[in-house]
Protein backbone atom coordinates (compact mmCIF):
# COMPACT_ATOMS: atom_id res chain seq x y z
CA UNK A 1 0.00 0.00 0.00
CA UNK A 2 1.56 3.21 -1.13
CA UNK A 3 1.22 6.31 1.00
CA UNK A 4 -0.35 8.98 -1.11
CA UNK A 5 -0.52 12.55 -0.05
CA UNK A 6 -3.24 14.62 -1.63
CA UNK A 7 -2.59 18.08 -3.00
CA UNK A 8 -4.98 19.45 -0.35
CA UNK A 9 -2.77 18.08 2.40
CA UNK A 10 0.29 19.75 0.92
CA UNK A 11 -1.60 23.03 0.62
CA UNK A 12 -2.81 22.75 4.19
CA UNK A 13 0.66 22.12 5.57
CA UNK A 14 2.07 24.92 3.43
CA UNK A 15 -0.54 27.27 4.85
CA UNK A 16 0.36 26.26 8.42
CA UNK A 17 4.02 26.87 7.65
CA UNK A 18 3.24 30.17 5.90
CA UNK A 19 4.79 28.91 2.66
CA UNK A 20 3.56 30.18 -0.66
CA UNK A 21 3.91 27.32 -3.15
CA UNK A 22 3.23 27.46 -6.87
CA UNK A 23 1.25 24.62 -8.56
CA UNK A 24 4.44 22.84 -9.68
CA UNK A 25 5.95 23.14 -6.22
CA UNK A 26 2.82 21.65 -4.66
CA UNK A 27 3.11 18.69 -7.01
CA UNK A 28 6.82 18.24 -6.30
CA UNK A 29 6.19 18.42 -2.53
CA UNK A 30 3.32 15.96 -2.87
CA UNK A 31 5.67 13.43 -4.46
CA UNK A 32 8.55 14.05 -2.04
CA UNK A 33 6.36 13.88 1.06
CA UNK A 34 4.68 10.75 -0.30
CA UNK A 35 8.13 9.21 -0.70
CA UNK A 36 8.97 9.96 2.93
CA UNK A 37 5.70 8.45 4.13
CA UNK A 38 6.27 5.35 2.02
CA UNK A 39 9.64 4.92 3.67
CA UNK A 40 8.06 5.23 7.10
CA UNK A 41 5.47 2.64 6.13
CA UNK A 42 8.31 0.34 5.28
CA UNK A 43 9.75 0.82 8.76
CA UNK A 44 6.33 0.31 10.31
CA UNK A 45 6.03 -3.06 8.62
CA UNK A 46 8.77 -4.30 10.96
CA UNK A 47 8.10 -5.82 14.38
CA UNK A 48 8.94 -2.81 16.56
CA UNK A 49 6.68 -3.20 19.58
CA UNK A 50 9.63 -3.55 21.95
CA UNK A 51 11.56 -0.59 20.57
CA UNK A 52 10.97 2.67 22.45
CA UNK A 53 10.46 5.75 20.29
CA UNK A 54 13.72 7.54 19.60
CA UNK A 55 13.55 11.22 20.39
CA UNK A 56 17.31 11.64 20.68
CA UNK A 57 20.20 9.85 19.10
CA UNK A 58 22.46 10.51 22.08
CA UNK A 59 21.57 8.75 25.31
CA UNK A 60 21.69 11.82 27.51
CA UNK A 61 19.23 12.83 30.18
CA UNK A 62 18.88 15.48 32.89
CA UNK A 63 20.94 18.21 31.36
CA UNK A 64 19.82 20.86 33.79
CA UNK A 65 20.99 24.32 34.74
CA UNK A 66 21.10 26.04 38.14
CA UNK A 67 18.57 28.81 38.58
CA UNK A 68 21.27 31.48 38.64
CA UNK A 69 20.88 34.66 36.60
CA UNK A 70 23.38 35.38 33.88
CA UNK A 71 23.88 38.72 32.15
CA UNK A 72 21.41 39.52 29.41
CA UNK A 73 22.16 41.35 26.19
CA UNK A 74 22.35 45.13 26.22
CA UNK A 75 19.11 46.37 24.74
CA UNK A 76 20.73 48.03 21.72
CA UNK A 77 22.34 44.74 20.82
CA UNK A 78 19.11 42.80 21.33
CA UNK A 79 17.22 45.21 19.10
CA UNK A 80 19.90 45.28 16.41
CA UNK A 81 18.29 42.40 14.52
CA UNK A 82 14.78 43.84 14.76
CA UNK A 83 13.01 44.56 11.47
CA UNK A 84 11.95 47.87 12.99
CA UNK A 85 12.29 49.42 16.43
CA UNK A 86 9.77 51.56 18.29
CA UNK A 87 9.29 52.33 21.98
CA UNK A 88 12.36 50.26 22.92
CA UNK A 89 10.73 47.22 21.38
CA UNK A 90 10.59 45.10 18.26
CA UNK A 91 8.03 46.69 16.01
CA UNK A 92 5.95 44.22 14.06
CA UNK A 93 3.16 44.60 11.60
CA UNK A 94 -0.21 45.18 13.22
CA UNK A 95 -1.80 41.96 14.24
CA UNK A 96 -5.42 41.94 13.29
CA UNK A 97 -7.65 39.67 15.28
CA UNK A 98 -10.17 37.84 13.16
CA UNK A 99 -13.47 38.45 14.84
CA UNK A 100 -15.46 35.67 13.24
Amino acid sequence: MAAVIERETVEHVARLARLRLGPEEVERMRQELSGILEHIELIQSLELDDVPPTTHVVALQNVLRDDTPRPSLPRELALREAPAVAHDGFEVRGWIETHA
Partner: peptide
Protein backbone atom coordinates in the same frame (compact mmCIF):
# COMPACT_ATOMS: atom_id res chain seq x y z
CA UNK B 1 1.79 45.95 23.15
CA UNK B 2 -0.71 46.95 20.53
CA UNK B 3 -0.28 50.48 19.38
CA UNK B 4 -3.39 50.82 17.28
CA UNK B 5 -6.11 53.47 17.30
CA UNK B 6 -7.36 53.81 20.86
CA UNK B 7 -4.86 51.17 21.99
CA UNK B 8 -7.18 48.37 20.94
CA UNK B 9 -6.11 45.12 19.39
CA UNK B 10 -8.19 45.02 16.28
CA UNK B 11 -7.08 47.51 13.67
CA UNK B 12 -3.72 48.09 15.33
CA UNK B 13 -1.29 49.48 12.80
CA UNK B 14 1.73 48.05 14.51
CA UNK B 15 2.60 46.12 17.63
CA UNK B 16 5.60 46.36 19.91
CA UNK B 17 7.15 43.18 21.30
CA UNK B 18 8.82 43.14 24.72
Amino acid sequence: VHAGPGGRRAGAESSIVD
